[in-house]
């Protein structure tokens, strides 16, 4: 089960955010920092890895006057991987929760 380590959880979170809407690397970083203890710079290596794997693609977006910003969007492959890993992770998390809460104990 590889979804257990932090890196995989981060990747899954990034895919989830980008599955909702295209964002700049900064937006992804700012959003994740609110929920997960990481430094602001840690998200960019993950974005790059996912892009190299073909799960994300980038494009430049002009926003009036300012220099164009790099935006990330999820690919079809990215969506497939996201839904598969999400299922896998949620199932895993539910099992762990049962063990931690002790609710697995009554049944045995």
């Amino acid at each position: 089960m590889n979804a257990a380590n932090k890196k995989c959880v981060l990747e899954l979170s990034v895919l989830s955010l980008l599955n909702r809407s295209d964002s700049s690397g900064y937006d992804v970083s700012e959003h994740l920092i609110k929920y997960i203890p990481i430094t602001g710079g840690e998200v960019y290596p993950i974005l790059r890895k996912l892009k190299n794997e073909g799960l994300l693609k980038t494009y430049m977006r002009d926003e009036g006057g300012e220099p164009p910003r790099r935006y990330y969007s999820i690919t079809q492959l990215g969506q497939d991987v996201f839904f598969a890993k999400k299922e896998e992770y949620l199932r895993f998390a539910k099992s762990i929760e049962k063990i931690l809460e002790g609710s697995d104990y009554d049944k045995n």
């Binding site: 690397g25 900064y26 602001g40 960019y44 790059r48 790099r70």
Partner: peptide
């Protein structure tokens, strides 16, 4: 490209 991302990060902050 990577430096560009971090530059953008600085600019926003």
């Amino acid at each position: 490209d990577i430096i560009g991302e971090y530059e953008q990060h600085f600019a926003f902050k």
